[in-house]
Structure formats: C-alpha cells, structure tokens
C-alpha cells in the first residue's frame, strides 16, 4: 500500500463566483480514519466530491493512493457512500449485489453476502422495505465488497437512530480491522468522532483550519485560563494563541505549541477534541466575521 492516501495541493473548487473550497493542501497518511468536520457549507461535501471524482477541481492537484486522479486511475480503489445511502429502492438486496458485480472490476461478492448474513439482512428483501439502518448496512456492504483502499462516507449516520449508528460504525471499524484501508468520515457532530478517528481535518468557509493526527493535535495544544485583566500578559511563551474567549473576569486562551511554564495565576490544561474544534471554528468566525477579538492566525 502507498504511504499517502490523500495528497491535495492547493486544491480549489469554484462554482460561479463562489469558492466552495480554496487553497486546500492536505496530506493524509494511508491507514488513517479521518474525521472531516466543519459547519454546514464549510466545503466538506465539495472536498468529498473531488476525492471521489464526482467533480473536477478548478485549481490545484489531487493524488489518491499515490496516483494522480483521473479516468480509470486511482478511483477504482475508492468507494463512496453519500448521506442518503442511495440505493435503488425497488431492487432486492441480491439485485444490488448483482449491479455491483456488473459495474465494478474489483468485486468480492462473498464479502457482502457474509456481512449481510451476519446482520440478518435477507438477500431477498426489497431495499425500500428495509429500515434506515439496514439500508445503510447494505450500502456499506456493497462499498466494502469492492475492497476499497480509500472509503469515503458523507455524514454516514446523520439519518440514523443511535442503535443503528452504533451498529453501522461497529461494522466499519471491524471491516477496517480485517483489511487495512483509509476511511474518511464527514460529520458535524465532533463528539462522535473522538473514538472513531485518528486524523482530523477542520474545514470552514472553504478553507482548511486545522489538520493532523489527533493525538499530536491534542498533545500540541493547551487551554490557559486566568484573569482577563492580565490577558495580554498570559504566560504563553512562544506558543501561538489560536483563540481567546472571555467569560466574566476570566479569559481562556487556546494555545498551540510547547506548554508554557507554570504561572500561579494561570491554569493550563489539555483539551478534548470537541473543545479543540470549537476553538478553531470560533477563531475562524472571528477573522471572517470581523469580530471584536481577532484571533492571531499564522
């Protein structure tokens, strides 16, 4: 397997006058489970459409699994599942599999049959009669039957109830344990990504705000809390202040870099994934919205 699953260089996509994605440079090592997060309209779906070849970039370059993306190249090793788990509702499950067999050069039908059997989903059922969770499982089984090296899921559980969410993610995580591949999941629920993902990409207003391995990102940030009156003298050392947030006479600063030395007036602690993402998104909102507390970026 190639070492880099996704290499995007200054990738951009413009629709009319509006840049849905701009200057997107990413490098995702193979084998990661990537959480792609950001508010609605951040560019998540645009990026995913470029990754799976549903759309062509306006600018920049995209390599997947060590190959420049193009017709009959790289994309046959990429599988994609959209939010609605789109399947023909009049098809029976075995007809979904037959379509997969006819349409895909790489197809391992027994993988899908075994997986669906384990989930008690009969091959004779009509897709339209299945529950939302079962339909999602059929879509995932069909995607996995292609044995993709890169699996891309756009908000895969957004439409599912909690039990179906858990079951679908259990299927995905077990599949990844069986056969190593790179997975990209988009979501706007950050908390549910913490146990699934080991790599994070935060998008907002079409730009990458933060990207990297999650353990490194969490190790590399601290939240400093102290008196707002002396915020400008906070012991940040050489750390970059990503975002500051005032609450009463206290101020919290998210800093990136080596943890600053202890100062009795200031308390430094680690952040969790959700806090990290929220501070980056808030900082982006400050800079793009012309807020009163411009965050120091770059």
């Amino acid at each position: 397997m190639t070492e880099t699953a996704i290499a995007a260089t200054r990738l951009g996509k413009r629709y009319g006058q509006k840049w849905a994605l701009r200057d997107c440079t990413l490098r995702v090592p193979a084998g990661r489970v990537v959480g792609l997060v950001g508010p609605n309209g951040a560019g998540k779906s645009t990026l995913m459409n470029l990754l799976v070849g549903l759309d062509r970039p306006t600018t920049g370059e995209l390599d997947l699994l060590g190959e420049r993306v193009g017709p009959n190249r790289a994309l046959d090793r990429v599988a994609y599942i959209d939010q609605e788990h789109t399947l023909y509702r009049n098809f029976r499950v075995h007809e979904v599999l037959k379509a997969g067999r006819l349409l895909n050069p790489r197809w391992h039908e027994q993988d899908a049959v075994d997986r669906l059997h384990e989930l008690n989903i009969p091959l004779t059922s009509k897709v339209g009669r299945l529950s939302g969770g079962q339909r999602a499982q059929v879509a995932v089984a069909a995607a996995l039957a292609r044995r993709p090296d890169l699996l891309i899921l756009d908000e895969p559980v957004a439409s599912l109830d909690p039990v179906a969410r858990r079951d679908l993610m259990a299927t995905l995580m077990a599949a990844k344990a069986d056969r190593d591949c790179t997975i990209v999941l988009s979501s706007h629920v950050v908390s549910e990504l913490e146990r699934l993902c080991d790599h994070l990409v935060v998008l907002d207003h079409g730009e990458v705000r933060l990207a990297g391995d999650i353990d490194d990102l969490l190790d590399g940030h601290r939240l400093l809390t102290g008196p707002a009156a002396t915020a400008d003298r906070a012991p940040v050392g050489t750390c970059r202040v990503v975002h500051q947030e005032r609450a009463g006479d206290q101020v919290s600063l998210l800093v990136r870099g080596a943890p600053p030395a202890a100062d009795p007036a200031w308390h430094a602690r680690r952040v969790n994934l959700e806090e990290l993402v929220m501070h980056y998104l808030a900082s982006a909102a400050d800079t793009t919205g012309g807020g009163k507390h411009p965050a120091v970026l770059g």
Partner: peptide
C-alpha cells in the same frame, strides 16, 4: 474495535 466501536488503530 467492534465491541467498543472504536478505531482499530
């Protein structure tokens, strides 16, 4: 990974 629904990595 399957029982806890966590990343096998």
């Amino acid at each position: 990974a399957k029982r806890l629904v966590i990343n096998p990595n």
